[in-house]
Design a protein around this nucleic acid. Structure first.
Lengths: 131, 131, 131, 131
DNA sequence: GTGGTCTAGACCACT
DNA sequence: GTGGTCTAGACCACG
């Protein structure tokens, strides 16, 4: 059974936090293709937020191809998440990596620290550690 | 001559990006104690933003003890600018690193590729343009 | 001055109708890159809908790369809408064409009629007829 | 033997797709007056949907005068099935054709390409599988 | 029961 | 002023 929880202190909006948790669970393998997610209302009760907030998170993830919602049935993880070409993948990742590098530079962080943190997080994911 | 530029694509608001850049120049030594900063109007023209946006960044940094504004004279770096604590820095970066890791895992990218791209972007920044 | 109006009788939801109108105006050239759109509240008053409904249409279009919203400034048409490769373009269009063909077949429409209607609509767009 | 299949990707609800397919077979002559339709349960198994979904499609078509259900016997095509008016058909299709044209123009695709793709898909349907 | 849309109104952050 | 988020509650369509 997966655990969902929001940090009301966080600067990130609630729907964004939920998206991140769901992405994290799929990336770590805790959630697999075809799995059914808690219904909008159930998730809303769990997180103690308004159902429309959950709707927002779910529809965003549907646009990203992570979820599929079936009217009157439920919300499910996509069976076959769209696979971009290796070239697209590389460029999308490079863009994100550039952002991280810029932000690190703006904080005047050592490059070694940045690399170390990324590596730690990659390993944490691979080992399937729950967030 | 220092270079200031905003990324309109960034998720961070304009005033926050300006704050980060000023902190970065301070931390890297490009700006030293007592140095004078561009006036609000000059900076606003440079960044092509509303002057009130620059005001917000400057006053925020003044509250943090990084800047001092002398009425009718200009805005100057404090004698002993405050540095962010290493612990805060580390956690802020870890947050961003985790997000990169999650997105990479969702695209089922090899960890080696991710690390390589981050390293390349860090080096590009160090060798490349001032920004 | 552009005209925006909703059909309350339509089966399509309000936010979808607004999206379609904006897309139509950009496709026909009535709206160009960088143009500013009516603010959320102004548009909401014009269409006599709730502001959140306009928000939904605008954010959807932003995801599609048609719009860019700048916090505290306004909503603008994208300067350089993302251009897919010729191959992607072809496949995306083929998929949409396939849908049209299936629906036409389910209605037992003559292929000639379908082609004629598509041609008419393409020409109407090219001639910049207002909807 | 007739072929029934649903497209879970389609924007149209399941019961609407089933209605369209039955109308199509009627219009094309594959189904004639008095012919017996698969039972609700059989159809539901075939389409892998909830039986209530089939019920909805059947009763809807009964209201339209296309079907007749004989209690305890089965569901049959009416002697003189209603045909959609040519005008309704034309406008419904024009709506869909316009949407295709708008999307194509937004991708700045050549009109010739659009027409070619539509033609290819229409032919593929005509020659290809029964669906 | 499920998801999808909409309203009225609030509060926040940014410019 | 601008856009962004959230609530509370309603109504509809689908299965």
């Amino acid at each position: 059974m997966l655990h969902f929880e929001l940090d009301t202190q966080s600067a990130l909006p609630a729907y964004r936090q939920l998206m991140d948790q769901l992405k994290y669970y799929t990336a770590s393998g805790a959630l697999g293709p075809g799995d059914r997610l808690p219904s909008i209302r159930t998730m809303a009760r769990t997180l103690r937020v308004n159902p429309t907030t959950v709707v927002k998170a779910y529809t965003e993830l549907e646009h990203e191809g992570v979820l599929e919602s079936r009217h009157g049935v439920g919300v499910f993880l996509s069976a076959s998440p769209a696979r971009p070409s290796l070239e697209e993948l590389r460029e999308a990742l490079r863009e994100r990596a550039r952002r991280l590098a810029v932000e690190a530079a703006q904080m005047s962080a050592e490059p070694e620290l940045v690399l170390q943190l990324v590596q730690e997080e990659l390993e944490a994911l691979r080992n399937g550690e729950a967030k």
